[in-house]
Simulated assay, not measured.
Amino acid sequence: MTRAITLLATATMLAGCAHTSRKPANGPGVGSASYRVADDTGMAHYQLAMGQVATGATLEAHEPPAYPDAMLSSCPSLVEVPARVIVGTQGNVGDVRMNPPAAQLPFADAVRRAVRSWRYTPLTLSRWAADADGNSHPVDTEAKPFSLDYVFTFRCEHGHTSISSGPQPATR
């Protein structure tokens, strides 16, 4: 009896970790979206002076874009949309810049809708100094705008079962 309960509990936990989507072969596809920070894009960076420290500029609230429903019927297998996210001094996204071809416009709109709600910890530059006793303390702090480049990836599977059980193991 204990073994049966253990097997049932294990099966239940595994079922909670996996997501299965099934669509008929002739029906619309199953879409997903993800994003990553783009590789070095040659963007300018703030130059810190001696005694200056930068903190923040970390993503706090974020949801990936939704796969556009209108594109599920054509189900392109892979679409990548590069975008520059411009963040203001309060940590709110002020603009999302991209130059997508016409075929990517529904995906670009999905990126804009999602990224506009993202929230970052504001980027602050603080200047530190030491007093006569050698104790350091901040002299001044200033919030700065910043931008980050991302690549948004949209995938669609047409007529196939899609199973995801969490992060994939790293490959070398």
Score class of each variant (00 low, 15 high):
residue 1 M to I: 14
residue 3 R to P: 01
residue 4 A to E: 05
residue 5 I to Y: 12
residue 5 I to N: 10
residue 7 L to Q: 13
residue 8 L to F: 15
residue 8 L to G: 09
residue 8 L to H: 10
residue 8 L to A: 14
residue 8 L to C: 13
residue 9 A to Q: 05
residue 11 A to C: 14
residue 11 A to S: 11
residue 13 M to Y: 11
residue 13 M to E: 07
residue 15 A to I: 03
residue 15 A to V: 10
residue 17 C to L: 15
residue 18 A to E: 13
residue 19 H to C: 11
residue 20 T to F: 13
residue 21 S to G: 13
residue 21 S to A: 08
residue 22 R to G: 05
residue 23 K to Q: 14
residue 23 K to I: 11
residue 24 P to F: 12
residue 24 P to A: 12
residue 25 A to H: 03
residue 25 A to R: 05
residue 26 N to R: 12
residue 27 G to F: 09
residue 28 P to Q: 11
residue 31 G to Q: 01
residue 33 A to P: 01
residue 34 S to D: 13
residue 35 Y to H: 05
residue 36 R to C: 06
residue 37 V to F: 14
residue 37 V to D: 02
residue 38 A to S: 13
residue 39 D to F: 03
residue 40 D to I: 05
residue 42 G to T: 04
residue 42 G to M: 03
residue 43 M to G: 15
residue 45 H to C: 09
residue 48 L to H: 01
residue 49 A to V: 04
residue 49 A to H: 13
residue 53 V to H: 13
residue 54 A to N: 14
residue 56 G to V: 05
residue 59 L to Y: 07
residue 60 E to Q: 15
residue 62 H to P: 04
residue 64 P to E: 10
residue 65 P to S: 06
residue 66 A to K: 13
residue 66 A to S: 15
residue 72 L to H: 00
residue 72 L to E: 02
residue 74 S to L: 14
residue 74 S to Y: 04
residue 76 P to E: 02
residue 79 V to M: 09
residue 84 R to V: 12
residue 84 R to K: 14
residue 86 I to Q: 08
residue 86 I to F: 09
residue 88 G to D: 11
residue 88 G to V: 00
residue 89 T to D: 09
residue 89 T to P: 03
residue 90 Q to N: 09
residue 91 G to S: 04
residue 91 G to Q: 01
residue 92 N to V: 09
residue 93 V to C: 01
residue 93 V to K: 03
residue 94 G to I: 06
residue 94 G to S: 14
residue 96 V to E: 09
residue 96 V to L: 06
residue 97 R to Y: 05
residue 97 R to K: 08
residue 99 N to C: 02
residue 100 P to I: 07
residue 101 P to N: 08
residue 102 A to W: 01
residue 106 P to G: 00
residue 107 F to V: 01
residue 108 A to H: 02
residue 108 A to S: 05
residue 111 V to P: 06
residue 112 R to Q: 07
residue 112 R to I: 08
residue 112 R to L: 08
residue 112 R to Y: 08
residue 113 R to Q: 14
residue 115 V to Q: 01
residue 117 S to I: 00
residue 117 S to L: 02
residue 118 W to D: 04
residue 119 R to C: 02
residue 123 L to R: 00
residue 123 L to S: 00
residue 124 T to V: 14
residue 129 A to C: 01
residue 130 A to D: 01
residue 130 A to M: 09
residue 132 A to V: 09
residue 132 A to E: 15
residue 133 D to F: 11
residue 133 D to Y: 12
residue 135 N to G: 04
residue 138 P to R: 15
residue 138 P to H: 11
residue 138 P to Y: 04
residue 139 V to I: 10
residue 141 T to I: 05
residue 142 E to T: 15
residue 144 K to Q: 10
residue 146 F to I: 00
residue 146 F to H: 07
residue 146 F to Q: 03
residue 148 L to P: 04
residue 149 D to M: 11
residue 149 D to C: 03
residue 149 D to E: 13
residue 156 C to D: 01
residue 159 G to M: 04
residue 159 G to V: 04
residue 161 T to K: 05
residue 162 S to D: 06
residue 165 S to Y: 15
residue 167 P to I: 03
residue 167 P to K: 11
residue 169 P to T: 05
residue 169 P to E: 12
residue 172 R to Q: 14
residue 172 R to K: 12
